[in-house]
Amino acid sequence: MKILVTGAAGFIGNFVTERLLEQGHYVIGLDNLNDYYQVSLKDDRLKRVEHFENFEFVKIDLADREAISELFAEHKFDRVVHLAAQAGVRYSIDNPMAYNDSNLTGMMTILEGCRQNNVEHLVYASSSSVYGMNKEVPFSETDRVDHPVSLYAATKKANELMAHSYSHLYNLPVTGLRFFTVYGPWGRPDMAAYKFAKKIMAGEEIDVYNHGDLSRDFTYIDDIVEGILRTLDNVPTGASGNAKYDNEAVTPYALYNIGNHQPVKLMEFISTLEEALGVKAKLNMMPMQPGDVYTTYADTDQLQQAVGFEPNTTLKQGLTEFANWFRDYHNV
């Protein structure tokens, strides 16, 4: 099959691209290579897949409607994995317009491309951030998510609504995936594992928000990729396992959590990372930050029922793999 992967130079997108190429699919990898974090890391990720003969990279901004339209018309993709977005909860507080262009306009250009060119299945990235300050755990796909606490979360909730409307109006098969705190080798520098490791190895203090009284459903990259690929092959037919409303019984739309369904206290995460790196961290205890939530915890029953898989990599396994990569990549 010919598959478009947006965000192919990003953390998750790069691993998904690699797996699809190994399976023999022809992959067009799209990325605008923006400088939200160092472009050199994105370039190095692309080097991991550029040797595949069945890979082609295109540098296009999602907000460029004409370029995206031409790309879809030229390639007639069978399936699309839409992972590109402006990420980061805290960054959205200071740079809100970047989220409008990438996450809202960008989602719209992808939906239109799929509609106009009869794509057989669109899988797109949502986020656990949509759950906001939900008190009931674990977080379920049928929970109400009407109270986002960051603009990033609001754009991801908007993406879910946009995708559902396209699926309903145009009979476009769409699956949304709510990712829970992804980590692992080649990860994003603004995420906890990378950010902490860099400061720990430099002997600098790490900021520990809410004085460490936070927990996250940390999910290893290999588990995320496996979930994406399985849902990509599980095309919704209008009888999604988590339909809540009558119209979803005929709408080819599905929505799943992908998380490790085992929340970890922040202090336990730090101690496990210390052990993996072999270095003790210096801690700078901080108050709660705007846009943060106290906990994330994924209910993965729907994913298990739909595709027979649920993430299960332990934090120790995952952080050991990350630490080994970090040391090698940074020569420390």
Results as ranks from 00 to 15, higher is better:
E120Q: 14
A125R: 02
G308H: 13
K47A: 07
H330Y: 15
E268S: 14
D207V: 00
H164L: 13
G308M: 11
W325A: 04
M108P: 00
E136A: 11
T155E: 07
V145I: 13
G13D: 07
Y131M: 08
V208F: 13
D223R: 00
N247P: 05
Y253W: 11
V208G: 09
S69W: 13
S102L: 12
E120S: 15
V49Y: 13
D31A: 11
T296L: 03
I110Q: 01
M267D: 12
Y220D: 00
G106T: 09
A163M: 03
Y294W: 12
D207F: 07
N14T: 05
V182K: 03
L277Y: 01
V27T: 03
P173R: 06
F77N: 10
L30P: 10
E70I: 09
M191Y: 12
A67Q: 15
E160H: 03
N54V: 03
F11M: 09
K199W: 09
C114L: 02
N331P: 00
F139M: 09
R216N: 07
P236G: 12
E112H: 12
R19C: 09
Y245D: 10
A249P: 00
D143T: 00
F15C: 07
E136H: 14
Y297L: 01
E18N: 08
Y36W: 09
S102I: 03
R79T: 08
V39R: 15
A63L: 03
H75I: 05
G227H: 01
Y297H: 15
I12D: 04
A8P: 07
S126W: 14
D94T: 15
N14H: 05
V332P: 15
I93D: 09
S128L: 01
E141W: 00
T272N: 06
V58G: 04
I3W: 11
E141G: 06
G7M: 04
L169T: 13
N210V: 00
V174E: 00
G227N: 01
N312C: 08
K156Q: 09
A197G: 11
A153F: 07
E204P: 02
P138Q: 02
N103V: 06
K156G: 04
E226C: 04
D299G: 05
K282Y: 06
T6Q: 11
Y170F: 15
Y170K: 04
V264C: 01
Q302T: 13
G13R: 05
N100D: 10
R45I: 05
Y99I: 09
Y26K: 14
L41F: 14
V119M: 03
F309G: 08
L33H: 10
L319V: 05
